[in-house]
């Protein structure tokens, strides 16, 4: 009995505690990311944005949450009920479970697994099922068509994202997320004799991959300018047309958690994770988690700005960009980077 407590119960409870803490932080961040998104969009259009609930509208997301939860959940009579209910749950759970392996600071990770980045890639490729199942189960042609478009878009951009991740893995020599960040501690900058700084991170040597990953991340999360499945001004809500109340909230949550995940991934793969901007006193006294949050928020800010001032792509242009531009380019980058690493002897 004692052995059971020490080997299973105590570590089990500790993991549960860590996961709950991570989830609570994640959901709080999601609430404010949502608020920031609306505020940034409003500022670009010279509007005020949400400013009524709480001081400066800070509690707006929580008011929205209450509103969603208190509404009546409507399940269409002709829908496939089990699939209809499971779809939003899959969407939200898959998005949130990726954060189990995401390190936010040195050692601050629920499960520091060896194949972290592959786990994230695998689980986030499951998110597409929430969309397909939701669209199909609604038994409505609008929801169904939107879900097909959305799923096709996500699958297309996943391919080039996979290749870009491989490029980073070749440079880092590990699939462990902490290892990827630590491998950016020295690089181009330190080769030139400078102290460890932002010049070492992978965004500089892998600049085309960095840009492609950023754009693919926007397309993967169905954000503007690639938000064709749910073009807000003309298509109501894409695959979520028939959803209301908490089930709609779960879809919405899954989408925003996926956006945060993409910001964190860009930060870890290309912007040195929690490494300080320049490794000199004062700057390296700042805690890891602050650097990580700042960088991830910077990436999100860029996504929000893109949303505000880039016009929407047409569907065929979107597919062309994914298959005819990003796929060959990222494939070429894999070959070039592998060759460079092999023949210069930089691969360790």
């Amino acid at each position: 009995m004692d052995m059971f407590i020490t080997t299973y119960l105590v570590p089990g409870l500790w993991i549960v505690f860590q996961s709950v803490l991570m989830l609570v932080c994640l959901l709080l961040v999601t609430a404010y990311i949502l608020y920031a998104d609306r505020k940034i969009f409003a500022a670009v259009q010279m509007r005020r944005g949400p400013n009524v609930v709480g001081p400066w509208g800070l509690l707006q997301s929580f008011a929205d949450l209450l509103k969603f939860v208190l509404k009546e959940p409507i399940i269409p009579a002709t829908s496939s009920k089990a699939v209809f209910i499971v779809a939003p749950i899959i969407s939200a759970v898959m998005a949130m479970s990726t954060f189990a392996v995401l390190p936010v600071a040195e050692g601050w990770v629920v499960a520091d697994v060896n194949l972290g980045i592959l786990f994230i890639f695998a689980v986030s490729s499951l998110e597409v099922y929430g969309i397909i199942m939701g669209g199909w189960a609604s038994n409505s042609k609008y929801a169904f068509l939107a879900s097909l478009r959305s799923a096709a878009q996500m699958v297309s951009y996943e391919v080039s994202m996979g290749f870009i991740i491989i490029v980073v893995l070749l440079c880092a020599g590990t699939l462990n997320m902490t290892g990827i960040v630590n491998s950016q501690a020295n690089g181009l900058g330190t080769m030139m004799g400078l102290p460890p700084s932002f010049l070492d991170w992978y965004w500089l040597p892998l600049f085309p991959a960095f840009i492609m990953f950023f754009i693919s991340a926007i397309a993967e999360t169905n954000r503007p300018p690639f938000d064709l499945p749910e073009a807000e001004s003309e298509l109501v809500a894409g695959h979520m047309v028939e959803y209301s109340s908490t089930m709609f909230l779960l879809f919405f949550l899954g989408e925003f958690v996926a956006i945060i995940l993409m910001s964190c991934l860009v930060t870890i793969l290309f912007l040195g994770g929690w490494l300080p901007l320049i490794d000199v006193p004062v700057l390296n006294w700042v805690p890891d988690i602050v650097w990580f949050t700042l960088k991830a928020f910077f990436v999100f800010f860029c996504m929000a700005m893109v949303r505000a001032f880039v016009p929407r792509y047409r569907y065929d242009q979107l597919m062309r960009l994914g298959w005819k531009v990003f796929l060959p380019l990222s494939l070429a980058m894999v070959v070039i980077v592998a060759a460079v690493l092999q023949y210069t002897g930089w691969a360790s």
Binding site: L118, F119, F121
Partner: peptide, 17 residues
Amino acid sequence: LLLIVVYVGAVAVLFLF
């Protein structure tokens, strides 16, 4: 993980389509 990425994430999606 490869089984999930390849079969579940890509092949089965096409099946479903």
